[in-house]
């Protein structure tokens, strides 16, 4: 969100980092000072943020596809308008986040290339298909609900541009979850077939949503350092628990069943327990083995290819205009 030309102005990024520099940086973090784009930061902090913010941006952009799939088949004009607005918001969120990542010295083009080549990942949840209209309800309720749990603490992330982007995203995300839950409510209170459709969507989206918080704390590679740097404020498991605790009563209200026989209230911990999750399957989907990975990237590639002439024409027009203006002056 700050001028690209300013990046790397603060010295050679490859210069050796002294223990004093690192200590001073950590002291700023510990004092809850925000780090801004041109401030000195350890190369690993920069790298971690580029990885996380660009992945987050890619997730928003790819996330437009499963929902876009239902725009033309939404059951009413109101549902269509709100879904269209939601998909447009996801595009906007991707752009705020790309802009935040660019402040760290990576270009938009590099990030696009990393997404298309598979070098950069995105949230594995978007590799599942949206088979029925109820999936749009389930995505808004569960996927956006999980995203909000993840994103609210990110509003206090130590990196200023990321934190500011998240404030905007969180404000907009709340409409997404409410529109999803409204769709679920309508279906759950409708005909038996509609309620069955809602249950089927919950059955398919529950586990991937619970997995959106990432691997358990015992296996999470990036967690410790990210917590020390205050990029992350809560562990994967803590956020997952918070999501489960918030969501199970919402399912109860709908009269729908969480597709996990081990999911029940625990009087001792005062939290809902859930059964074990299949992390092998999670990693298979992350690494390209999900039902929709290939289609998602192919669609993104096609959009990129189809837009190339527009970008070129716009640049050619801008160049022509500026030549004409110079000639007139």
């Amino acid at each position: 969100m700050y001028a690209q030309g300013l990046i790397n102005a603060s010295g050679d990024p490859n210069a050796a980092e002294t223990p004093e520099q690192l200590a001073r940086f950590q002291a700023r973090i510990d004092a809850e000072e925000k780090i801004e784009a041109r401030d000195w930061m350890p190369a690993a902090y920069r790298k971690t943020l580029i990885r996380q913010i660009s992945q987050h941006a890619h997730s928003e952009i790819i996330g437009m596809q499963p929902e876009g799939n239902w725009v033309t088949r939404a059951p009413s004009l109101r549902r269509k308008a709100s879904l269209l607005a939601k998909v447009q918001d996801e595009g906007g969120h991707g752009l705020y986040l790309y802009a935040a990542a660019e402040t760290l010295g990576i270009s938009r083009e590099e990030m696009q290339d990393q997404l298309l080549s598979g070098a950069a990942k995105y949230s594995s949840i978007f590799n599942y298909p949206t088979l029925t209209w109820a999936d749009i309800g389930a995505i808004g309720w569960l996927v956006d609900g999980a995203a909000i749990m993840n994103q609210i603490p990110l509003c206090r992330c130590s990196y200023g541009p990321y934190a500011r982007a998240m404030v905007r995203v969180c404000k907009e995300e709340s409409f997404h979850q409410r529109q999803g839950y409204e769709i679920m409510t309508t279906l759950a209170q409708g005909a038996p077939e509609q309620k069955a459709m809602a249950q089927d969507a919950l059955n398919r989206w529950w586990t991937p949503s619970v997995m959106m918080f990432g691997p358990p704390d015992t296996d999470s590679v990036h967690s410790d350092q990210s917590m020390t740097w205050k990029i992350k404020r809560f562990t994967n498991d803590a956020l997952r628990q918070r999501f489960v605790d918030a969501t199970v009563p919402q399912a109860d209200y709908l009269g729908l069943t969480i597709p996990d026989p081990e999911c029940k209230w625990n009087d001792v911990t005062q939290h809902y327990d859930i059964g074990p999750l299949d992390w092998d399957d999670f990693w298979k989907v992350v690494k390209g083995g999900g039902p929709m990975n290939r289609q998602r990237i192919a669609a993104r590639q096609k959009a990129d290819d189809d837009g190339a002439w527009v970008r070129e024409a716009a640049l050619a027009y801008a160049a022509k205009r500026s030549t004409q203006q110079e000639a007139a002056e």
């Binding site: 969100m1 700050y2 001028a3 690209q4 752009l95 705020y96 802009a99 660019e102 270009s107 938009r108 083009e109 696009q112 982007a165 990129d304 190339a308 970008r311 070129e312 716009a314 640049l315 027009y317 801008a318 205009r321 500026s322």
Partner: peptide, 29 residues
Amino acid sequence: RARLPLWEVFIRPRNGLAHRHVGSVHASD
């Protein structure tokens, strides 16, 4: 790919307030 230049965006929420930096966009002009 064609590189679209970066623009910084400033928005005035309503009259009486100053324009404030909100982010950036890429655009040809």
